[in-house]
Amino acid sequence: MKLEFKNVMPFPLKEYQHDNSSVWKSGFSLEFPKKVLLNASSGKGKSTFVSTVYGLRKDYTGTVLLDDKPIDTLSIHDWIELRRTKLSAIFQDLQLFPELSVWENLILKNQLTNHKNESEIESMLVMLGIGDKKEQKCGTLSLGQQQRVAIIRSLLQPFDLLLMDEPFSHLDEGNAKIALDLIAKETDLNGGGFVLTSLGSYHGFTYDHELKL
C-alpha cells in the first residue's frame, strides 16, 4: 500500500512554525510494507496524522493519497471496507466498549473478519499478561491493561497498514517491548507495515523509516 502526503496542512496546525523536515511542510511518499516511526513532541499533530489517514478527520488542505487515490474521494462504504481489510488502528483514546468484557471486545472485531481463532486470541492475551482478565469488563481495567486489549484488537484483522497512536503510553518499557514484538510479528504475517507515533521513545526497536512532525 502506498501512502502519500502532498501539501497537507490540518487547519488547527496552520499557525504553527513547522520544521522543514516536518511532513506537514515537506510531504512524503511511502510504499508499505515498512515499519515507520513517527516521532514528535506533544501538540505537533500525531493524533491528527492518524485520524486523517484513517479517514476520521477531513479538516485539512492539500491531498492525502492511498494507493494514488485521494482519500477525500472515498465514501463511508469504501472506508468501512478498508478498515476491515487493509487499514487497522490503535487510537490514543483506545475506543473500547467499557460495558463489554475483554473477550467480547475482541470477538466483536474478530467475528467481522474471522482473522484468528479463539486459541490464537487467548495466547495473545497471555503473551501480553492479561490472560486472566478475559471475562472482566473493559471499563474496570487499568489504562495499561485497556491499552493491551486495544493492541490485540487491532491485530484481529488483515492489514497493509497499522496506524498506532502512542500505543504504549501507559505501559512500562518491558511490556511495551513485548507488545511491539507481537505487533511486528503480526505485521510480517500480514505482509503489511505500520506507523507508530511516539513521544520520542524508540522502545528498543529498529525502524525502516522515520517521519517527523
Binding site: I80, R83, K109
Partner: peptide, 13 residues
Amino acid sequence: YEIKTLLRLGYSI
C-alpha cells in the same frame, strides 16, 4: 459513541 466506534472497527452501516 458506540455507532461511531463500530464504524471505525469496520461494521457496515
